[in-house]
């Protein structure tokens, strides 16, 4: 596994540390183990926030099969959402900010790609969530996608609600779905060019007229001006 990935993992681990003994979430551990067994080589990685949430990363090929397994074996019949993440490191949003917004210099412009929970390998990652209302447990799924204009199996045979979500992903990220019944634009006018949620899609209004910056930071209740200047930068 690449090094940025392990970094991200460690930070999450640290956040759980303060409790004396790490909580073992048996329900979710067993769930992940079962998925791992069913998917075999399709399963890549997983992450558990004890008592809170679970993430599973699968391969692009196993995307549809994962949905089938979750739906049929685990009762995850509530379709929550399907979207994607563009992990391209981007100065986007920062280079157009006013100088006053750059409150500290530590926020360096990234150049290496860095992935979040459960790791990653490629620029585009599908992200979906399904839920089991009876057991009241949800799962976040991720899948790395190959290439700049990836193609992946549609979820519509399993979750008909994925139809519009996939159309949205298509127009926002340029990820298309195989065997989708109606792969056309959902939101934007047909003549619109580009995929807005990609990190390299610029917001032209911000270029034309940069944001003036944080000019009015509101005081927290019970704070006066003197205190805020001290407590501002710490913690």
């Amino acid at each position: 596994m690449s090094s940025p990935d392990t970094n991200a993992e460690e930070i999450i681990e640290e956040s759980i540390e303060p409790q004396e003994e790490p909580i073992i979430d048996e329900k979710r551990e067993a769930f992940v183990a079962s998925i791992k067994q069913d998917l075999g080589s399709g399963f890549i990685d997983s992450h558990i926030d004890p008592e809170i949430d679970v993430w599973i990363r699968v391969t692009q090929e196993a995307w549809l099969e994962t949905a089938k397994i979750l739906f049929e074996k685990h009762g995850m019949n509530f379709f929550n959402f399907l979207s994607a993440i563009d992990w391209k490191p981007s100065p986007f949003g920062r280079e157009m900010d006013a100088a006053i917004d750059n409150v500290d210099d530590e926020v360096a412009v990234e150049t290496e790609m860095e992935w979040g929970v459960a790791g990653g390998e490629k620029r585009f990652q599908l992200l979906a969530r399904v839920h089991n209302p009876v057991a009241n447990m949800g799962v976040n799924l991720k899948a790395d996608l190959e290439g700049d204009f990836p193609e992946v199996d549609t979820w519509t045979p399993v979750y008909p609600g994925a139809n519009w979500h996939e159309r949205e992903v298509m127009e926002m990220f340029g990820i298309s779905f195989k065997n989708h019944p109606n792969m056309v634009n959902l939101y934007l006018p047909t003549e619109f060019e580009g995929h807005p949620l990609r990190k390299d899609f610029p917001l032209l209004s911000r270029r034309a007229k940069p944001w003036p910056g944080i000019v009015d930071v509101e005081l927290m209740p019970g704070e006066n001006d003197d205190e805020t200047e001290e407590s501002g930068e710490e913690t």
Partner: peptide, 28 residues
């Protein structure tokens, strides 16, 4: 909380039962 809010790296999904139904935010 600090005056200038910086959220540590991570991902979280929280949903609540809003008037229209389940509303959630997945923050990276």
């Amino acid at each position: 909380v600090p005056r200038i809010i910086k959220v540590p790296p991570g991902e979280a999904y929280v949903e609540t039962e809003n008037p229209l139904g389940v509303m959630g935010y997945y923050i990276v």
